[in-house]
Simulated scan of single mutants.
Amino acid sequence: MAVPRLATNDLARVAVFAALTAVLGLPGAVNLFGAVPVTAQSLGVMLAGAILGPWLGALSISVLLVLVALGMPLLAGGRGGMGVFVGPSAGYLLGWILGAMVVGLLVRALGRRTWASVLVAMVLGGIVAVYAVGIPVQSAVTRLPLSATLLQSLVFLPGDLLKAALATAVTMRLARAYPRAFRTTVPAGAGRQSGHPE
């Protein structure tokens, strides 16, 4: 089976959202319980999924994480290198890929976008999916019981809900002002290019 080639504009959009997510880390991070840093970067994850769609959104976050693994200090607080992938936040970083994919799938599946439906997509993908990977990994690394780790993680929830609301506002405004931003390219042989917001 042939691997579909990405159009140049899709590659550019992937790079833009990888860079946007990196830039959202510039304000730094707040460490809670001395383990997992709270950053604005998960906002970039939600927006990447919503605007680029599931596959390009996940690809943009994957590109960012590959650059981080290669040593580029693109995570909040100037963190980078393989060490971040063996620490307590490793699961959350990997969960970003799943989160972008789930947000993208849910937003694309909406028949008619409403504030409520997009917010639900942001919460399920940008929070629930990320936590589903992050919490078990954090529990394993810190050797805390899963229940205790889950309880600790609830402190992140208000900030993550705020980011989900902000991502929803940006997505809805962009969908109305510039619907072409949501266009996805159909791989060669699969048909035409979609020009409507999916």
Rank of each mutant, 00 (worst) to 15 (best):
L174E: 11
I135N: 05
A7N: 14
V86H: 03
R13V: 08
G104N: 08
L150K: 04
L11H: 03
R79N: 09
D10N: 10
P37T: 11
V14H: 02
T168R: 01
L174C: 12
L70C: 12
L124D: 09
L32F: 11
L93P: 03
A121D: 01
A69I: 07
V141I: 15
L75G: 08
L52E: 06
T8G: 13
W96R: 09
A169C: 10
P187M: 10
P158S: 11
L67F: 08
V118L: 04
P4D: 08
A29S: 13
K163Q: 01
M1K: 07
A190R: 11
S139W: 06
G28H: 14
L119A: 09
L161W: 10
L146N: 08
A181F: 01
M72F: 13
N31Y: 15
A48L: 11
A181Y: 02
R176H: 11
L119S: 10
N9D: 13
G111C: 08
A109Y: 02
L166Q: 01
A129Q: 04
V133N: 05
G195D: 04
G57S: 08
A40P: 00
V38C: 01
V107W: 06
M82A: 15
K163D: 00
P158D: 08
A167K: 05
M101S: 04
F17S: 06
L74I: 07
G83W: 05
P158R: 00
T171F: 00
L98M: 10
W96C: 08
V155P: 07
A181G: 03
I51F: 08
P158C: 14
L20I: 07
R180Q: 15
M72V: 13
I97T: 10
R108K: 12
L93D: 07
T185I: 14
V186T: 15
L98S: 00
P136W: 07
E198Y: 10
A140C: 03
R183A: 15
A18E: 09
A140S: 01
